[in-house]
Amino acid sequence: MLELKNICYEIEDDNDNKEILKNINLTIDEHFVAITGPNGGGKSTLAKMIAGIIRPTSGQILLDGEDITELNITERAKKGISYAFQQPVHFKGLTVKDLISIAAGKTMNVNDVCGILSEVGLCARDYIDREINGSLSGGELKRIEIAMILARGTRLSIFDEPEAGIDLWSFSSLIHVFEKMRDEIHGTILIISHQEKILKIADKIIVIAAGEIEKAGSKEEILPSLMYTAASCKSLTDKMANENQL
C-alpha cells in the first residue's frame, strides 16, 4: 500500500515560487490504478516523487506503512519501487541485454531475456545486443523501458504513459501485458495514461489537474465524467477522438 500525505512540491522559477503539486493526499491499495489528466497537470512529477527522483517540499510518503520520504532512489528501488520513464534514457554502449540484466539483478542468459522481450512484443534475437540509443525507434525504446520493469517484478510498478509511441496493433497486446501483471502480481501497478482502454482495466482512476487531485474513484464513477468534461481533460478526449477516427 502506498500513501501520500499532504504532498507539496514547489520550485523556484525566476524568484517566483511555483507550486507544482498542491497538498496531495492519496491512498493506493488497489492492484491496478490509473492516473490521468491534462498535460502539465503534475502526473510525472508525482511519479518521480514516489521513485525518489525528486523530494517533496513538504509531506510524507509511506510504503506499506513505512515512511520512505527520506530514502534515496536506490533505497526505494530496493524496497520494491520501479518506474518506467515517460522519456526513456539513452546509453552509449549498454545493450538491451545489459539493462534487462541490471533490472533483473542477475546475469540473464539469452533465453531469460528473450522471454521478457517477447512479452513486450519484441523479437529478442534482433534486439538483445542492440545499444540503448537513438538508433532504436521511440516505440522500441518504450517497450524496452516496460520490459525492464517486468524483469524487476517489484511490489509497486509505475508506468508513465507506456502507450506513447506504441502502434495501435501492438497496443492491444500491451494491454494484455498489463492485465496479466494485474492478475499475477500481488503488488500494485500505477499507470499514467491518457488511453481509455487502459483506464477501463483499472480498479481505480485518479484525475490530476493543475497540481491537485481533481477526482478519484472507480472507473464507473470517473470514466463517464471524463468523457464530457472536455475542459479539464482536453488531451484525453482529443486522443480518443483521433482513435475513433482510425
Partner: peptide
C-alpha cells in the same frame, strides 16, 4: 555522465 543515465540505473536498484 548524463544525470538521467545515473538516475535510470539507480531506479533499477544500483547505487550511484
Amino acid at each position: 555522465i548524463a544525470g538521467e543515465q545515473l538516475i535510470k540505473l539507480m531506479t533499477l536498484g544500483l547505487t550511484e
